[in-house]
Every structure is written in C-alpha cells, then in structure tokens.
Design a protein around this nucleic acid. Structure first.
Lengths: 191, 191, 191, 191
DNA sequence: GATGAATGAGCATTCATTCAT
DNA sequence: GATGAATGAATGCTCATTCAT
C-alpha cells in the first residue's frame, strides 16, 4: 500500500471514531506511519483529504456494484444485485458507509462538483432508465422511486447493524426486503 | 424569546450552515446578540450546547407528533398521522431536521444517554406495540418494520426537498407513499 | 503602558534585531508579558501588527516634528528645525528609524493606503508649498527638492550613527550640513 | 545562462516582489526551471543564496562603474561618471537596486564579512582618497562627504523612479544634481 | 550533476473557556 | 445575571533541508 493510500485508510478509521474535527492531521500522519509533511505533500489541505477519501470510497463502492450487476441477466435481477450488493457492502465496510453519511451531512458536501456527483450515481441512473424504458416501474416520478429504494437499503442495513443475525438469516432478510421494495415500486402489470 | 432560547436558535442556523466545528461559540454569541460569557453562563461547554439543541429539537418534534396522533381514531390512521406529520414537520423545519442527521453521524451522539434515547422514541415504540398487539403487522421483526417506515419517511422527505411541488401534490405524494409503505408492512389479512 | 502599546514596543525591539520573519509572534507576546492570544486579540494578524507599528512610529515622529517647527518663525528656520529635528529624532530613536527603512523595503509597504501615506508626509508637503509660494526655492521640481533634502537628512544621520561624536560637535555637523543643503536648494536671489 | 545563474536571476525577481520570507526556495526553483534539490546543490542554504545574490549584484555594479570611471581624465570627471553611472545603473536595474536596500535593512547584512564589505566599496574609497590627496574636497570628514554623495545619488534616483521623464531631461537632471552635489562638497579654492 | 519525495521543526492563528468587574 | 478581555493549548500548514535514486 503506497503512502497516500495508507493515509486515506488511516484517516477513515480515525474520522469515523473521532469525527473530522476530532482528528488532527498529525494523528492521521503518525498512525499512518508517515510524517506530517508527507500528508500535506499528497493532500494540499485537510479538506482536500476528506474529499479525496469520500471520492475514493464512492469509487470503490461503485466498482463493486458494477461487478455485482454484471452477473445478472434480467433487469429485476440487476436491481436485486444492486440492492443486496449495497447492503452487503455497507455491512462489511461499516466504517466507509458511516463515513459517507457523516460526509453527506457536513459542509464538505459542497466541495463535490456537480459533475463528480453525477458520475457517482451513474450506475443507478442507468439502471433506473433501463427499467423505466422497459415500462417496469409504477407511474411515479423516477427520482422518487430511486429515493425510496435507497431508503430501504439504508433501512435494512440500519436494522442489521444493530442486531446480530446469522449470515443465512441475514441474506434471507435482505432478499425479503428487496422483494417488498420491488413490489412497492414495480408496475404490477408488467412485473 | 429569552437568551438561552435565542442562543439555541442561532446555533441551529449556524451549525447547519457551517457545521459544529465551523461555528465558533463566539460567532453564535455575537449573532444571538449576547456576550461570549453569557453563552457559557447557560451552557457549561460547547458540547453541552450541542446536546441541548438536539434534545430540544427532538422534544419539539415529539410534541408536534403527539398532537398529530391524537386527532386519529384507528391505529392505521395514527400511523398515517405520524408518517405525514413527520414528513411535513421535516419539510417546514429543514434546519432542525438536517441538524438531527448531522448530530446522529457525529461523536456527539454518544453523549445522549440510553434513557434519553428511549424517551425520544417512546411514541413510535408505543404505536408499534399497539399495532403488533392488534396483529396488524406482517410477521417481521418489529424493529425492522420501525426502521423501514422511518426510512420511507426520510426517503419521501428527501425527494420533496429537492423538487418543488405544489402543496396539494405534495400532500398527495406523501399520502401515496404512506399507503405504499403501509401495504409493505401491514398484515394483509387483518388490514 | 497598556497591553497593545507594550506589544508594539516589544515588537519594535525584536523586529529590528531579528527581522519580521525572524521574530515569532509567540516571542513578541512572551517578551511583552502577555499571552499569545492577547496579541491576536489586539492585532488580527502579524501583518496588521507590523503595519500598526509603522503607523504609530510615523505618527510619533510627525508629532515631534510639529512641535519642532512651531518654535520657528521664518521659513528657513522651519526647514532648519525640521532637518535638525529629523536627524536628532533618528539618532535617539535608532530602532524606530531603522524599522522605518526596513518596512519601506518590504512588501508590507503596499499595505499602507494612499491616504495614510499622504497624511504621513503632510508636514513636509505643507512646508515645501510655503517655501515655493514665497519663491524661496531654486527653479527645480519641488519633489526633487524634497527628495534631496530627505536624502541629506538620512546621509548625515548615517554618518553620525557610525561615528561617535560629542553632542556639541554633532549638533554643529548637523547644522553645517543643513546649511550646505539649504545652499543647494534655496534660490540664491531671495535667500 | 547556466543553472546557478538562472536561480539567482529568478530569486532576484521574486525577492523584490515578495520579500525574502515571502519567497519559498521551492518557488524559486520551479520558476527557474530546476528542481528543488538542484537549488540546494548550488547554494547550501537559503541564506547563502541571498548573500550570493547580493555579492553578485554588487560585483556587477562595481564592474560597470569601473568601466565608467575609466573613460574619465580629471578627478571631477571621474566623480561625475561615478555619480551619473550609479544613477543610470540603478534606473535600468531597478530590481537589483531595490534588492540592495532590502538586503541592507535585514539581518542578512551581518553575514557579509568586513573584508568583503571593504572590497565592495574600494572604488569609492580610492576615488575619495585621490580627491582628498589632491586637496579637492572641503575640510569635512571624508566619510561624511562619501555619505552625502551617496545620499544624493539615491535621492535623484528615487525622484526619477517615481516620475516619468524623457531620457534627455533625465540625463540633464542627473548632471544638474551632480553639479549641485559637487558644489556642496568640493573645495571652492581648488575647484 | 539532477531529481523530487520525504521530513519535521516551527509558526500563525483559532477558539473554548475562565474570571474579575 | 451579564460582560468581554485574557488565556494558552491545540492545530493546520509551510518550508528549508536531506538523501536515495
């Protein structure tokens, strides 16, 4: 792992525990095993580090989701993969997922450009467009459907984080909730 | 409005715009029209101010929801009132709602005691218990149901914040989503 | 002496010895017997402190020169008082005088507004105008005359700083150089 | 232009604009088109670079003045050439001249050895000695005369920098001021 | 000679908190 | 209760300098 990567990994761990403000750059540097100066060699400011971390996490998540979707044939199956994949990724990358929320409710969000923002949600946009074109969705605003699905993902994730459930049960619950969600948003006629 | 109240109101506005860290107590004080010392007269530390703000907002929200629920007769109607009320309160108290999220994804959350936490969600717990007892819910874990409903509330709110919709349409959308949500979690047999 | 004044006095001493850069604000504060925070309470930035010091020194010098000029009756005598007064002030306020030069050949000079600059040289401007109106000066550009006089002041000062001369001799030398300078710039006809 | 020379040229430009402190070595290096390490290959420390720049400028100035003086036959003419040459060099090497002042009022001055200092003013010392021996000067301390001449040089330069004057007028003004200065310091009997 | 990544000491500045009035 | 001057610990960031390649 090269130095900037090591810095990002360490920053994630510390930000999640102590918050942005509660984490001095000096602590990030020393725990990452580099000097303070090196941190600023790679990230011009602390804010830039925070943003870079967010971007890299989103990137990683997206790449994971793409591999998930690619294993599916039907559109519904793609949704399922996206849904299940998101929840499972969130469960096994607790820190990263928590950080995303943290970031979203902070002034740092404004530092993300429109374009970067669009790029990050491209997969979801594409898939929804596909479903919409195939007339698979209820006659509701597409954005509303997107938001409702996203909410259910974060809902079931939230539930599973608090409980301790066996992997099998967990998988079943996620599938069940996906089916419920799909029933909520899918067009009953073409379903 | 007395001084501590003025301080809380000002703090909310600033926290939402600049974040906790980005808002010095001195700025809160000056914008609230009180002296630096006065702020610390009412709130021993900045953290205490943050927590007090959170608690007071939750308190206000809960009181509002209680009045909403009280106008309902059936259990489903209570759920509806809770659902719609939550979304509408969130829409007309954007700052407060945003602050709640901000707070939840920050280390400050640890400063809320278990008991306080329980008290804040009492209404929801009560209502779910009622529904459960009346056998109105699907055979899913009650907590999962609670989380799913909460997610949908925040989902529809999220959607409405971004769009600009007429009040009538807005109301209709919220009702629609509630019906979808209710269909998702309610026991079809006793519904 | 109040705190901001004490800070200025200490800063002068240190700047002259170690330069602006070579003098940390922390050293100024501690030698002035105040806390680091107090320094920044009175001067928002280090640059502001530097500028404030410059302005206060120029102010003091000007007030001194005004009292000198006021004891003179003829215009030539006023020039003499200004000349002699400037040299003597420079000799007994070595640090302050050195600081002025230091400041003038630094980027800080740009932080002085046009207006402030004009105000600082008002005495000289006035006196030259008076002499010009009375036709006492050679037909040379007034600004050139001003600059030449100023140069001679700094010349004789420079000389006296390096040598050690008895007060009497010193006074005589300054007078001599003034007469030479006056002969250089004064109109021989009306002299 | 070889690398160390390029570094010196760039450093001059930047020092004059931003001051010593305001100019990082990294900026000098990058603007000079060399790497950070190369700068330190040629100049062990930043201070050494500053001193080297000063020395090289003084050297250049002196060489120029020597060629000027060599075209003169009488002593007064030599003084004239020195005077005029100095002003003209200062005018066409504004940055270099400004840097000299900057350097003189900075702690770096202490890094110049006595001997180096003497060498730099040798021309002036020699010429004054010649004039003194020939009994051409007023019965004033030689050092005072030296200082007064130097002051007038910097005075007329100062004036010409601020104004915009045609080359012819400029040359005439410089000559005039030289004559005035010469009249001030030269022995009227042997003149 | 040339490079530029890495270092870490050093500094300006901020800000929560105190306390005398 | 109210004030705001004073504090000083804490921190982001800079930059001269080193050194392995």
């Amino acid at each position: 792992m090269d130095k900037p990567e090591k810095i990002l990994v360490t920053a994630l761990k510390l930000f999640v525990t102590y918050g942005f403000h509660g984490t001095p750059t000096s602590k990030i540097a020393s725990e990452a095993g580099v000097s303070n100066g090196t941190l600023f060699h790679y990230f011009k400011t602390k804010d830039e580090l925070v943003v870079a971390l967010y971007t890299s996490i989103k990137e990683e998540l997206n790449q994971f989701l793409v591999t998930q979707i690619n294993t599916a044939s039907t559109i519904k199956e793609k949704f399922s993969r996206l849904f299940v994949g998101s929840v499972e990724w969130a469960l096994s990358n607790g820190d990263a997922f928590y950080f995303i929320q943290q970031f979203r409710f902070s002034p740092h969000l404004n530092l993300i450009s429109e374009e970067e923002s669009r790029r990050q949600s491209e997969i979801h946009t594409q898939l929804l467009l596909e479903a919409w074109t195939a007339n698979l969705l209820k006659p509701l605003p597409v954005n509303l459907i997107a938001t409702l699905i996203a909410s259910q993902i974060s809902g079931i994730h939230q539930y599973l984080v608090d409980k301790t459930v066996s992997p099998d049960e967990q998988r079943k619950l996620i599938d069940d909730v996906f089916e419920l969600t799909w029933a909520t948003v899918a067009n009953p006629e073409t379903r």
